[in-house]
Design a protein around this nucleic acid. Structure first.
Lengths: 347, 347
DNA sequence: TTTGCAATATAGAACGATCCAAATATAAGA
DNA sequence: TCTTATATTTGGATCGTTCTATATTGCAAA
């Protein structure tokens, strides 16, 4: 029943062959048991599983992947994990894939295209079934198009790379920022700064466009000096609002690229003895858990990051099954949340 | 020169064999080139590399790992990526391993022992060379000991699992919190709350012990009611300080398990019209970038997370080389940073 | 020439799983 | 009891590398 005696081996790793010998069946049978095939008799299955338990067998996924072409593995590259919005999103993405039986390998590209490319190359070498990417700033369209040529399934999350032809899940950034700005206009503000965001990400371009669009829609001239690009950090928000308030005419309100910057703005106001929601109106974007906690509570635009994650997982798995699908785009609707940081202008 | 004609193959993945055929050399030679072996002539090497470029060859790491036993891969499991301290630490860890030529596979266990175990099992199946773990709350000693039995190199980071016998890199938490508490005592405080931390992590136990130790060292009786365990969130910090201030005697100061809780405390104070650094003294732990930015600036205990990451990488790689080393512990010294949130008690 | 010795290149057997076609065991029907 | 159909099990080839032992080449010295 056994196969030819194996050559003497050292304290090698335990293999299917050892398991087969112990259970008194063939390798093929063990393989079937491990794959939960219904073809094998219940009694045999039990015996094999018992042997596996007793011997402490560890399945070698690498060896299996060599034969099958599937690895059930997804590479996830996130542009910046220190940003709480992206950690929340990451958690959602991971959960979604895990629920569908995939292993997730995560990396933080730290807004570095080099690190991102590195990760993509590694995942290719490891035969990942697909990639989910929040592209780093300055990601090259050509690099993304290459993924298509190379036939490696990929979905872009949160940030788009226009012209890449990849699947995409994000939210209506322009519309979100339009709502935020219009909200301030309706409160009576006329000098509304746009703090943060850059033209190096689609999110930045779209949100900045939303601000401009709202001003235009209400016949308010855009004061370029009140539009400041910059990184999504508290430090930047604080420094920028202080600088803007020294101008004349000074803004009476600001929409911020995201909540982190808005928190920075509120901290910056306090540094110069002013208070958001009383002396100056602030609106953020993302609706981090922290937003509701501040005094005043931060008005902001909510994104459903859970939904973003599950949609991304769905799109990617569908593409893995069906590589020739046309490119699909899922754009979720954001929601304006009004709290106390957005007040009317002081008289 | 070529080997026997290969059977007709579909649009298969490009392999060493194809590369060899194209360059007119043997598979073995190509393998040597790819491994940067000095044994192959410069001219041959160039020819092979050119073929690789032209054909768009992708190295199959899985296949290689099957033969060699090394994967140059490290699994990193972090308990909670939404906590900025851990994202910073993660970034440091990742950088340290990358610099040493290892690929890092990251996961966020989200404080779930189940997810953590899942990840460990997966990394075993993928033959990772080693693991770096910030253990989830409630991690079982036995589970960690099993890693030793199974001879899988592992280093614990930040949180210890006493009795596990694993290598460990962390900081002197008890001493750090001792300094923080003593600082408040010297300012004149006698009712000092300890907010946050739990006995389900070593970090929690150690920091909580530091608070008690400082009180005892200065002959101050411990008021158990002022010691509140809880999760490291802003919400918890805010709610807890509000509750504590309704007691009699109320605390006049608090040391917090970490900065996030301290921020929560400052937000909570503001919700009831009080101000940290004026009406109530607050000290945090971690020294997040945000700490210096608040008004008042947050007094806190600084941890060198960069150093933590590099030390962890060093320990792990040493153990991979030399599995039978005795267990080693690296405990870094934290530093008290005094800003404006820690004021004397109001008269 | 021939020989000796580096310097290079190669064939073929692993590594640990899967999968296919074929063999065997079991049960049911005549 | 003998077929025949069905349920299980299995050998051997295969996936894409690496590695060892062996073969080939080129060149200087004899």
């Amino acid at each position: 029943m056994n196969e030819q005696p194996k050559p003497p081996r050292g304290p090698q790793r335990l293999t299917l062959r050892d398991l087969a010998a112990h259970a008194g069946v063939s390798r093929a049978t063990v393989s079937l048991v491990l794959a939960k095939s219904p073809l094998v008799a219940a009694k045999t299955r039990a015996r094999v599983l018992e042997s596996a338990r007793v011997l402490g067998y560890v399945y070698n996924r690498g060896a299996a992947n060599l034969r099958t072409r599937r690895t059930n593995t997804i590479g996830v590259s996130i542009n910046e994990l220190t940003n709480p919005y992206f950690t929340g999103l990451t958690s959602a993405i991971q959960k979604a894939f895990l629920a569908l039986g995939r292993t997730v390998f995560l990396t933080d590209s730290e807004e570095s295209v080099v690190q991102q490319d590195q990760f993509i190359a590694t995942m290719r070498e490891y035969n990942a079934d697909g990639l989910a990417i929040c592209p780093a700033q300055g990601t090259d369209v050509a690099a993304m198009q290459r993924l298509i040529e190379q036939a490696i399934p990929c979905v872009l999350i949160s940030r788009d790379v226009p012209g890449s032809g990849l699947d995409y899940v994000g939210n209506a950034n322009q519309h979100g920022m339009f709502m935020a700005t219009e909200h301030l206009i309706k409160l009576g503000h006329r000098h509304i700064a746009m703090i943060g965001g850059t033209d190096r990400t689609s999110t930045g371009m779209e949100r900045r466009a939303g601000h401009r669009e709202a001003l235009a829609a209400h016949g308010i001239a855009l004061d370029e000096a009140l539009v400041v690009q910059g990184p999504p950090t508290r430090v930047f928000g604080a420094a920028t609002v202080r600088a803007l308030l020294e101008r004349d005419p000074a803004p009476t309100a600001a929409v911020c690229f995201n909540d982190v910057i808005a928190f920075g703005v509120m901290l910056g106001l306090r540094q110069i003895g002013r208070e958001a929601g009383r002396d100056f109106a602030v609106v953020g974007y993302d609706d981090l858990a922290e937003a509701a906690l501040w005094t005043p509570g931060l008005s902001t635009v909510e994104i459903d990051s859970h939904r973003t994650g599950t949609e991304a997982a769905r799109l990617l798995l569908e593409r893995i099954e069906e590589p020739n699908l046309p490119a699909r785009r899922v754009v979720l609707q954001p929601r304006l949340i009004i709290r106390d940081s957005s007040c009317p202008p002081r008289a």
